[in-house]
Amino acid sequence: MSKSSTERKAVEVSIEHVSKSFGTQEVIHDVSFQVCAGETFVIMGPSGAGKSVLLKSIIGLIQPTQGKIFIDHLNASVPETHREVVTSMVFQAGALFNSLSVFDNLALYPREHLLYDKDTLEDKVMTVLKALSLEQAVNKFPSELSGGMRKRVSIARSLMMEPQLLLYDEPTSELDPIMAATISELIATLNEEFNVTSIVVSHDRELAMSIGQRVALMVDGRIQALDIPSKLATMDDPVVQNFLHPVIDVQNPRFRKQDF
């Protein structure tokens, strides 16, 4: 049985020598790290580094080829773990149910798990929507929302689960800088207010360095560096520096016309 919301606490996550291959292509290679309970941990890296695959492995959507992932000392590959520990994920594109209104998107989890009566459910949904400044969107459908609103509704839907572990897959992708900053602030605030462990996957350097209590840089399926943001920023590793401070040299571009 899952614990009631009052008994729930943030959980720690332990990733031990995890590798994942699709056919002959290895996308994650021997990745190990721990995320403390209540921590905001950011995994950043370039596109195709294996960040999202790692995130899906943590929540049990993908099984690692090798290694183990433990959530609160329970094996994350076992479905029962995700019934014992409430884990939720904010998907890159939101993954809102297009046939349901914003209200019904948020109410789906509590309804299916028979958590509240009708009035309490309405109150809960409206409270979460207000917290995220979405009360105007309650009767709208996902197709009627902007990209930023969809992201916030997706976060709101996760919050309705009162998760102990919240995973974010590229929460600021496809958003303008102002909305990206809003979402970043939201993630940091929620972590404090809801006492949840957050793992954020992003290639947004500003988001990573501003909200991450620790940040891992993942490159080609490996953890290249892992530290607190201030130390990561001053690392000598050229791969880290190249990712954090990419040089845009229009005089000597990486690709020249004759390369095509």
Binding site: K56, L61, H82, M89, F91, A95, L96, N98, L108, Y109
Partner: peptide, 15 residues
């Protein structure tokens, strides 16, 4: 729903 992760979202919600 599968391609746009809605089915995955259901799974993560234990539905």
């Amino acid at each position: 729903m599968k391609v746009y992760n809605e089915v995955d979202a259901l799974v993560t919600m234990n539905i």
